[in-house]
């Protein structure tokens, strides 16, 4: 999660959207290239990794399912941080960040749910069970959709920003619930095997491809997020210019 902190501190220096856009313009192509390389390496290693003696080929879904699930929570954490930025520091980019991260987070959550279902069908014999982990991730998905609807409910971005920030922060309760649901409740979903106090229980031949995949997808996320923020800033500029045009028409 150190990348999260790095990004948000960088955003903090960039109060000026114009400078932010200029920087994104310079950064994004390289970031996209880097994420493509890391992701290709990660997926390549994932296919080269040994098959699980119990799960067979289906274990390969793990290499994308786990990063999607992590990202769905990381994206929400970034949104929660940005919401703090909106409410506490009134940072002009914070609300842009929330608005543009929500659809990306929703897609990652949906992908996590979908890949999990595809994994669960042969393993558990059903597409879906209402266990604590799955349900809490589904709730996360609903919250993403709710925030998307809220940020788009009003034409004026300033008005919906604070409401969306408050909802995002309240919904943050769900993140620790998702993380610890496998420990607190007796669930069908397996317990954590990578991020544990006593070290990962997963074999290193699987751990490394998984970690590289996770980094790769995180880079994809940051690329998309920065691009979406830039688009949103542009969209707001267009809207502001059209308002000025309307004011000056017919004079």
């Amino acid at each position: 999660m150190s990348e999260t902190a790095a990004t948000s501190s960088k955003l903090w220096d960039l109060a000026n959207p114009t400078r932010f856009v200029a920087l994104v313009d310079r950064f994004v192509p390289w970031l996209a290239l880097l994420s493509a390389i890391v992701l290709a390496a990660g997926l390549g290693l994932a296919f080269a990794a040994p098959e699980d003696y119990q799960q067979g080929i289906t274990v390969r879904i793990m290499y994308i399912h786990v990063p999607f699930a992590w990202l769905s929570m990381m994206c929400y954490s970034i949104m929660a941080l940005s919401s703090l930025g909106t409410l506490v520091w009134r940072h002009p980019l914070a609300d842009v960040s929330v608005k543009s991260a929500a659809p990306i987070g929703a897609v990652f959550t949906l992908l996590a749910l979908a890949t999990g279902s595809i994994w669960g069908k042969p393993m558990w014999g059903t597409w879906w069970v209402w266990d604590a982990r799955l349900t809490s991730v589904f709730v996360l998905f609903l919250m993403y959709l709710g925030i998307i609807a809220l940020t788009r409910a009003l034409d004026d971005p300033g008005k919906s920003a604070r409401a969306a920030a408050i909802v995002t922060l309240v919904g943050f309760i769900n993140i620790p619930i998702i993380k610890f649901s496998v420990d607190w409740w007796n669930t069908l979903h397996q317990p954590a095997s990578v991020i544990r106090l006593d070290g990962p229980t997963i074999h290193s031949s699987m751990l490394w491809p998984l970690l590289i995949c996770a980094v790769g997808f995180s880079l994809v996320f940051f690329t998309l997020h920065l691009m979406a923020m830039r688009t949103e800033i542009w969209r707001r500029r267009v809207s502001a210019m059209r308002k000025i045009a309307a004011r000056e028409a017919g004079r």
Binding site: D155, R242, K243, A245, A246, R247, A249, G250
Partner: peptide, 18 residues
């Protein structure tokens, strides 16, 4: 009606008189 510039703008952006 003297508003040739506004054709492509959203109606909601206009003032009451416009």
């Amino acid at each position: 009606v003297g508003l040739p510039e506004v054709a492509s703008l959203p109606y909601g952006y206009l003032s009451t008189g416009q």
